[in-house]
């Protein structure tokens, strides 16, 4: 879709998020997993699923993220029909086919990411949102392809790309195909950046493994939600390697920021404003296309 079509489409009907309200289990009362305080569900919801006592950020589904991030009714999903197949014939305790079926049923999603276009504070953006509840947000062919197509759409239409990561890493059931998604998505990021466009990577709890070691660490701006687990190797593997306890706060947002990997940590209530500020400050650049020869010769 071109920018012009985009604006023409402004009034056209947008796909509504599946769950308009934040989905909180246990009906009326919720116990915070971090501070064990009991919270009234409505309070938690009103607080964007952040514990009012200890500020613990509960994980969001991708549709909840859409609802709190994008301008109302602005989200239009792309490539929603892409679906995983068991191309290696992978079977552990159950077959990968069966796992796909169960994950779809559990989450109502086609895979671990939704992608699309939308607006944040009026600024058009291309956005991908991963969902940890679908097979641990793992990246297989579908996640890699949807994210790559989204970044390419951003490149073609000179849109900023914003990716919210929530992923345990590569999807083992797709073997090497999942590893190749790291290369594919990072290549798409390269081309997007070559055109002088903005890529904001938002690291949410958890972002690990192959997702971290590809597009998630490649933002022009890397943002993180507070206390999100962000890393390459899993904490248990590291403990086994170095045979000592890991320091407190290891692989959490503040640790990443202290070690130079994250630009800024934003509380969920401020995150949207942060992103909008970056969109505003970089807006002039998107109006000037880079000619083909410039970056290459």
């Amino acid at each position: 879709m071109s920018i012009l079509e985009w604006f023409a489409d402004k009034k056209a009907k947008a796909i509504k998020p599946k769950t308009k309200k934040l989905d909180i289990p246990g009906n009326l009362w919720v116990k915070c997993v971090s501070c064990s305080q009991v919270i009234y569900s409505k309070d938690l919801e009103a607080n964007l699923k952040v514990c009012p006592h200890c500020q613990h950020h509960f994980r969001l589904t991708c549709h909840e993220r859409v609802a709190i991030t994008l301008d109302e009714n602005s989200f239009e999903e792309t490539n929603s029909f892409l679906s995983s197949i068991n191309s290696l014939g992978f079977t552990d305790a159950i077959s990968y086919d069966e796992r796909i079926k169960q994950a779809k049923k559990k989450t109502g999603l086609n895979d671990a990411v939704i992608t699309g276009t939308g607006r944040i504070d009026g600024f058009p953006v291309a956005v991908a949102i991963m969902d940890f509840s679908y097979m641990g947000g793992s990246m297989g062919s579908v996640v890699g392809e949807k994210i790559t197509r989204l970044i390419e759409l951003g490149t073609e239409n000179r849109l900023p790309v914003i990716i919210f990561s929530a992923s345990g890493g590569a999807r083992m059931q797709e073997g090497i195909l999942s590893l190749m998604q790291m290369a594919k998505t990072s290549g798409a990021v390269y081309r997007h950046k070559e055109q002088g466009l903005l890529f904001i990577s938002v690291l949410t709890d958890p972002t690990t493994g192959g997702t971290t070691a590809s597009f998630a660490m490649l933002g022009d701006i890397n943002l993180a939600e507070p206390n999100a687990l962000i890393g390459f190797a899993g904490p248990r593997v590291i403990e086994q390697t170095i045979r000592q306890k890991l320091p407190k706060g290891f692989q959490r947002s503040q640790y990443l920021q202290d070690h130079g990997m994250v630009d800024s940590i934003a509380h969920r209530k401020d995150l949207r404003d942060h992103i909008a500020a970056f969109l505003e400050m970089t807006r002039h650049h998107r109006l000037v296309p880079i000619t083909e020869e410039t970056p290459h010769e």
Binding site: G231, F232, P247
Partner: peptide, 15 residues
Amino acid sequence: PGLSGEERGVAEAIA
């Protein structure tokens, strides 16, 4: 896969 690698951003280096 050790602490030092995480500290110095192995994921970023590979990416």
